[in-house]
Design a protein around this nucleic acid. Structure first.
Length: 870
RNA sequence: GCCGAAGUGGUGAAAUUGGUAGACACGCAGGACUCAAAAUCCUGUUCCCCUUAAAGGAGUGUCGGUUCGAGUCCGACCUUCGGCACCA
């Protein structure tokens, strides 16, 4: 019979399911590996061929490791909250959980159809209340924490409250808290005298999860805010997105900037991904400096990386949203300033970036350059961003490109303070290599110094006057955590009528989503949850006071920020993941997923993990030790697969036509895992032919074992190729080089076809080598040869003998002046002198050497003879 | 503009430490089997010159360098892809 992949694959998938072949248990005595795939969002479209790429890679790796006796945790689950299901519900009023469950069923069926060796008993689903109970619990842990910069870790807010009651803020560096408006200091007595709402307002500036009024991307049509990276997609679909200040939940990921950056260096991740995270965090060393205002007592704080150019600061610029704008604006400029602020507020930071032409208006106010005492004008301009530093800069037009452009446009003074090779009024000079000039006052001089000395000297001078200090700043912003959506985890917070808020008690978790009949946006800026009146309204049973539940929900990133932990202990109802199990399974040893998650998902998950680590809830500082991305699979026409281009390949069709083993094999044979590569139907046919060749090598048309296979001594060639094959696969699989491993297996099969006799034991062992790649056909052929049970539970990976991988003769190259003139065969390890003699015996070598002088001989054993002649 | 990765036959690719460039596939060409086709099997297949073979020449994005020898190391540049984009 021919290779009937459909029934074979069905048979073995049922067998594995029935026998729990891939069930994993905790076995602390055994070596463990945690092999993780990025879990999918179960969309209505089903699996596409991009999914099986990463999944197959980890599956081969997993099966290989298991055959080598390693206890492998390899689970799968669903990142199932998300906008598509909710949008569908808006149109149909079908509850998103219904569509979500349907989509999950499709995905599960498709994934099982590929013969992937997941332990399905550990399946997780972010929309399951039993799961999101713990997502909410983690939120409460984060809400209940603050970052202690002295200890460089998160601690419970209760510790902070105790500290305030005892010593107020005296032991804290308040410059590191409170964002742009620095937290005001207070004493223990003042704290103890505060009302509860006052205390909550103070604590808000410290908590790792907090509410803030910030400008967000509001999409009226969708009735929700959008993350920056989501905006383009919806604008393209015709929705309008506006900037709007709204009350939002934030996560203080910025507290972890330094640690996220430092620890990234310890990870075995693609260099480009680590680099992206570095850039995203954007660490820069500089100084914070206070400028006095000319006619007022207040001070204006700026961040600069070029304190060495302070003497050249000829004006200042505030972000339009800066809180001191009103104070600085003189009455006659009020109107113009207001108009500019209004216009700027409607533009997103994205829009501001697009138009590089500088704009801005003068406030009429002045500050004083602390270095030279000069009155300098204060402007507002949207090239200064409120979200970075202090939202204000000292402008040094001679040595900063942006300031130069601005000064040129508005006719502001440009003063050279770092020696430049040209007139700085003609061209900006941003290099730091020249000496400082025009940079001295009665107390300090940095003239003649270059950057490092000038930096140290001037910052020291500021420090001595208590007007500034060294400071590290980060580009990273806090994480906008709330969405005005129904289909997400409810945030377990209650807002009371007295203005305070409290958390939903742990014992009441999960706080389950109410059932809605309609899923339309609320019509206000609140989520559809606001329409569930009974759910929203709460009364404190103890005091009778009334409150409203938080109606915002969490973003899709929430559930995916910790799912890998739940796999370790998926059914635990006492805790999200027991420490004991973590100690065995953490960290994730291999994580494979798309590069599109290089920053966001991987940064958020690292952040949550670190908070949980600080609080003692997880056992490692980092979640994912080794990360690899699978490359994008393009359509046959070398373009990104998309419905509109009609080049989408459906795994169902491929499996139907060629089988799962062929699909798996082809996805791995296309090229290196991480590379982008185009789909090729011809390529699938190629590996399908290979599987057929394997089948026919083992079995005759009549379904009997091929009579060629029996008691036989292998030929030297076959023996060598066999050991080469086992060696290559054994080395390539852990390194995730599947394409070359498959090529080597093809070489073995080609060699086997040349043989008149094939040793049975060798042919049995080859099936074990093939099994991680094409598990169904391997199981079937093994059972046809008389093997009982499953290969994966009955067999161990096969050894190879390195000494048998080399032939006893080698082909040696004879070169003259580096050019190949002849090739000859010589016994392995022929001495160099003999190699030379053999080379010289080649007629064509004589032709190139005779009559010339040999000036140098290079002889590399088993490789080449190279004669340099003149 | 800045940061990162990559450029090898007609195509996907291989060559892990500087040592036979193009393994393994796809495609194509020729042949065997067949009444025929499909499937299968065999042979060939980097390019140029040549009737063929031998021999020769060129060749891993471009130009240059180091070396007996460079896809691999160094320098400059070009192209493609990914990311960031007024971050003071």
């Amino acid at each position: 019979m021919s290779y009937d992949f459909t029934s074979i694959e069905k048979k073995w998938q049922e067998y594995w399911d029935l026998h729990g072949t891939y069930r994993t248990s905790d076995e602390p005595s055994k070596k463990k590996l945690f092999v993780l795939d990025m879990f999918p969002y179960p969309s209505g479209a089903g699996l596409h061929v991009g999914h099986p790429e990463g999944y197959t890679a980890t599956d081969i790796f997993t099966r290989f490791q298991r055959l080598n006796g390693v206890n492998v945790l390899h689970p799968m689950g669903w990142d199932a909250f998300g906008l598509p299901a909710e949008r569908y519900a808006m149109q149909t009023n079908i509850h998103p959980s219904v569509t979500t469950d349907q989509n999950i069923s499709t995905f599960r069926r498709q994934i099982k159809m590929l013969g992937l060796s997941y332990d399905w008993e550990r399946e997780v689903n972010t929309t399951d209340p039993g799961y999101y109970r713990w997502t909410q619990w983690i939120f409460l842990q984060i809400y209940g924490s603050w970052y202690d910069h002295r200890a460089k870790r998160a601690r419970p807010v209760t510790d902070l409250i105790a500290e305030f009651a005892q010593s107020g803020t005296s032991k804290l560096d308040l410059g590191l808290y409170g964002g742009n408006a620095e937290q005001r200091p207070f004493t223990a007595a003042e704290w103890n005298g505060m009302t509860e709402p006052q205390r909550q307002a103070v604590l808000r500036e410290f908590r790792l999860a907090y509410v803030a009024e910030i400008p967000v991307n509001w999409c009226e049509g969708l009735g929700t805010v959008l993350a920056n990276e989501e905006v383009d997609e919806w604008v393209e679909k015709g929705y309008t997105v506006e900037r709007k200040p709204m009350r939002q939940w934030m996560m203080r990921i910025t507290a972890y900037s330094e640690r996220l950056l430092e620890d990234a260096a310890t990870l075995d991740w693609p260099a480009s991904t680590v680099e992206m995270q570095k850039n995203w965090i954007g660490r820069s060393e500089g100084a914070e400096l206070d400028f006095a205002l000319a006619d007022r007592p207040e001070r204006l704080r700026v961040f600069t990386t070029r304190p060495d150019t302070i003497f050249g600061a000829t004006y200042m610029v505030l972000a339009p949203e800066h809180p001191m704008v009103d104070l600085l604006t003189v009455p006659e400029r009020k109107e113009e300033v207001e108009r500019y602020r209004k216009a700027a507020s409607l533009k997103s930071e994205l829009d501001r970036g697009i138009d590089k032409e500088k704009t801005g208006v003068f406030t009429g106010g002045y500050a004083v350059n602390p270095a030279n005492g000069k009155r300098i004008p204060v402007w507002i301009a949207d090239y200064v961003l409120m979200g970075y530093g202090f939202g204000a800069i000292m402008a040094v037009p001679a040595h900063d490109e942006r300031d130069w452009d601005f000064a040129k446009k508005f006719g502001l003074e440009i003063v050279e303070v770092v020696r430049s090779p040209h007139d700085v009024r003609e061209k900006v000079h941003t290099e730091t290599d020249g000496p400082c000039v025009n940079s001295s006052n009665a107390e300090v001089s940095i003239d003649g110094m270059t950057y490092d000395d000038a930096f140290r000297t001037i910052v020291g001078w500021f420090e001595s006057k208590q007007l500034g200090r060294k400071r590290v700043n980060f580009k990273l912003r806090d994480w906008l955590f709330s969405r005005q959506r129904y289909w997400g985890e409810p945030i377990p917070i209650i807002h009371w009528e007295d203005g305070t808020m409290s958390t939903v008690p742990e014992s009441e978790l999960p706080l389950v989503l109410p059932n809605l009949a309609k899923f339309q946006p609320s019509g206000t800026t609140e989520s559809p949850l606001a329409l569930a009146a009974e759910w929203v309204q709460v009364t404190d049973p103890a005091t009778g006071r009334k409150g409203r539940r938080e109606t915002n929900t969490m973003p899709q990133w929430a559930g995916s920020s910790w799912y890998y932990l739940r796999y370790i202990d998926p059914r635990n109802t006492e805790t999200f993941c027991s420490l004991e199990k973590q100690r065995y399974w953490l960290p994730v040893d291999l994580y494979v997923g798309g590069a599109e998650h290089a920053v966001l998902h991987l940064m958020y998950a690292r952040f949550w993990h670190k908070v949980l680590f600080d609080l003692g809830h997880v056992t490692t500082a980092e979640p994912f030790m080794k990360l690899r991305h699978q490359g994008t699979i393009l359509g046959e026409n070398n373009k990104k697969m998309s419905k509109s281009l009609g080049n989408v390949v459906n795994p169902d069709d491929v499996v139907k036509e060629y089988g799962a083993d062929a699909l798996r094999l082809f996805e791995m044979f296309m090229g290196p895992l991480e590379e982008m590569k185009p789909w090729s139907t011809k390529g699938v046919e190629g590996v399908f032919r290979f599987l057929n060749r394997v089948w026919r090598l083992y079995l005759t048309e009549e379904d009997a074992v091929n009579p060629v296979i029996g008691d036989a001594v292998p030929s030297p060639e076959l023996l060598r190729v066999y050991h080469q094959t086992v060696k290559k696969v054994t080395e390539d699989v852990p390194a995730l080089r599947f394409n070359t491993a498959i090529a080597q297996m093809m070489i073995f099969i080609n060699e086997a076809y040349r043989q008149e006799r094939l040793p049975r034991s060798m042919m049995e062992d080859f099936l074990i080598v093939l099994a991680p790649f094409a598990p169904h056909i391997a199981e079937e052929l093994r059972s046809r040869l008389g093997g009982a049970g499953s290969l994966f539970t009955s067999c161990a990976w096969v050894p190879y003998d390195a000494s048998l991988t080399v032939a006893d003769t080698v082909e040696v190259v004879a070169q003259v002046n580096g050019k190949i003139r002849a090739k000859f065969t010589a016994p392995l390890d022929t001495p160099e002198a003999e190699l030379k003699a053999l080379a010289m015996a080649e007629p064509n070598m004589r032709a190139h050497v005779d009559g010339k002088t040999v000036v140098k001989e290079i002889i590399v054993k088993n490789k080449l003879v190279n004669l340099v002649v003149k």
